[in-house]
Design a protein around this nucleic acid. Structure first.
Length: 445
RNA sequence: UCCUCCGUAGCUCAAUGGCAGAGCAACCGGCUGUUAACCGGUAGGUUAUUGGUUCGAAUCCAAUCGGAGGAGCCA
């Protein structure tokens, strides 16, 4: 065994004898040649076995390898523009081959498969190029978000997953037993974050979020990851600045680190390069007008019916999708109708029918990835809103305390990780953007 | 919860009322430059389940089960 390297670094080792350790991604043979596509988690490299250069036994061992067999090869790295792989362009001329395990017939062949079959084999599907590429980008997105927030002085303050009551009381929750009581899996950390905000100033929680909604769309998971910053003394306008700067940084990091992965995913990189400050900002009023204009101009009767909207309605998916098509960047829509939003959102001064809320809609039809707002900080108003919403005030006494002891204007938002990954990788479905998705009809494997 | 669509070999699909088939994967053989190689061969079936219509059902009808896409709700 020579110097063991990772495939992502192969270009730095041209001319050297190296060792690669991994799994056989694919193989083609041609008489006295075997082409092994070897995957090691960091990339895929072509390893060439030529009968004239190795022992009879080694050649036969190479020929007998099956897809996903595990192996260690040693050989010299040479440039070859035709060599496939990720990053590609280099191949290894095999001199030694150690077979660790001959894999049984691998269910996922290098061809097209149906969704159900792939999801049943998610534990194996993860090894495929596109899954690998998207999940590597996911990891970078998470890391970039944390780095940006940490660098801006935010304190990571994770909030409980087991909670006694509904957070926003707007969605169906997963009920679990907590000793002798019922409890619920968290649908948001925001209310707790308002408490940590008053202790630390700028905070964020980053964790799994659970929604028991019976949603069956390409945008929904029952368990997904969300980052929720909460900032003291922050206005809605400043909140938009923060969201914008953070996202621009995330996109820069993805572009800087994942060109090969974006190529595997056939992502149009120019769409990502266009994500620069500033993002367009539309009030709900303006957005309603835009939707009405689109509706008038379309000749698609079905779309016309879907886009029917009167002032005060929340936007549905079709409205969001059409709105985002007007821009090549994410678009902020702010000042939504108060009646369409959660109870804790600050009303706009002199215009209580709308509130200090803002959603960020991703372009190319991807839609909402962030929801945020200024929070009510007046005790009496918050008490009144809780009553109007018909939720149990006793459950919110600690939350109301935050308005009794040094209440300050503050704002925060929640960003859905998997929705962001779906958009940045240009994929069509959220379920492949998390290693083991939980959806309406599936929690296995 | 509602609407639409789908279920045939391990996988992707064809057969539309008349003998259940092909490609890929697997296995055997051939080939020095493959990119989902190619060529020849072997093997592979309770047509989701149950019932009905029919001389005859993968095909038509009903119910059930499983899945997909969308609406609503949301990130």
């Amino acid at each position: 065994m020579a110097n063991p390297i990772r495939i992502q670094d192969i270009a730095q080792h041209e001319g050297e004898t190296v060792t690669l350790r991994g799994w056989l991604y694919a193989k083609t043979g041609k008489g006295k040649l075997q082409f092994l596509q070897l995957r090691d988690g960091s990339g895929i490299a072509q390893c060439v076995v030529f009968k004239g250069e190795v022992s009879e036994e080694l050649f036969q061992n190479a020929k007998d390898l099956t897809q996903e067999s595990s192996l260690i090869v040693t050989g010299s790295v040479r440039a070859n523009t035709k060599a496939p792989g990720v990053p590609g362009g280099y191949e290894v001329g095999v001199e030694e081959l150690q077979v660790l395990h001959i894999a049984e017939s691998f269910p996922i062949a290098p061809k097209e498969h149906g969704v159900e079959f792939l999801m049943d084999h998610r534990h194996l599907w993860l090894r495929s190029r596109q899954q690998w590429a998207a999940l590597r980008i996911r990891a970078t997105i998470i890391r970039a978000i944390r780095n940006w927030l940490d660098d801006q002085g935010f304190i990571n303050m994770d909030t409980p997953i087991i909670t006694p009551t509904a957070g926003e009381n707007t969605t169906h929750l997963f009920e679990v037993s907590y000793f002798d009581d019922a409890a619920y899996l968290a649908q948001t950390g925001q209310l707790y974050n308002e408490a940590t905000m008053a202790a630390f100033g700028k905070v964020y929680c980053f964790g799994p979020t659970f929604r028991a909604e019976k949603s069956k769309t390409r945008r929904h998971l029952a368990e997904f990851w969300m980052v929720e910053p909460e900032i003291a003394f922050c206005s809605l306008e400043e909140l938009m600045d923060i969201e914008e700067q953070m996202l621009v940084y995330v996109v820069e990091q993805v572009l800087a680190k994942h060109r090969p992965e974006l190529e595997v995913l056939e992502r149009d990189v120019s769409k990502l390069e266009a994500i620069t400050s500033p993002f367009p900002r539309l009030s709900y009023d303006e957005a309603v007008e835009k939707v009405a204009e689109i509706r008038e101009q379309t000749e698609d009767d079905e779309l016309k019916a879907q886009l029917d909207l009167t002032w005060g309605d929340d936007f549905g998916s079709p409205h969001e999708t059409e709105l985002t098509k007007l821009f090549d960047k994410p678009v902020f829509v702010y000042h939504y109708p108060t009646a369409a939003k959660a109870f804790y959102m600050e009303p706009v001064e002199g215009r209580p029918e709308v509130c200090r809320s803002v959603d960020l809609l991703a372009p190319e039809g991807y839609g909402e990835i962030i929801g945020g707002s200024e929070r009510i900080y007046d005790l009496e108003l918050l008490e009144r809103r809780i009553e109007e919403f018909g939720v149990n005030k006793d459950d919110y006494q600690w939350y109301l305390d935050l308005r009794r002891f040094g209440s300050v204007p503050h704002a925060g938002f929640g960003l859905g990780i998997e929705r962001t990954v779906t958009w940045l990788t240009g994929q069509d479905h959220i379920r492949a953007m998390i290693p083991f998705p939980r959806t309406l009809n599936r929690m296995n494997p």
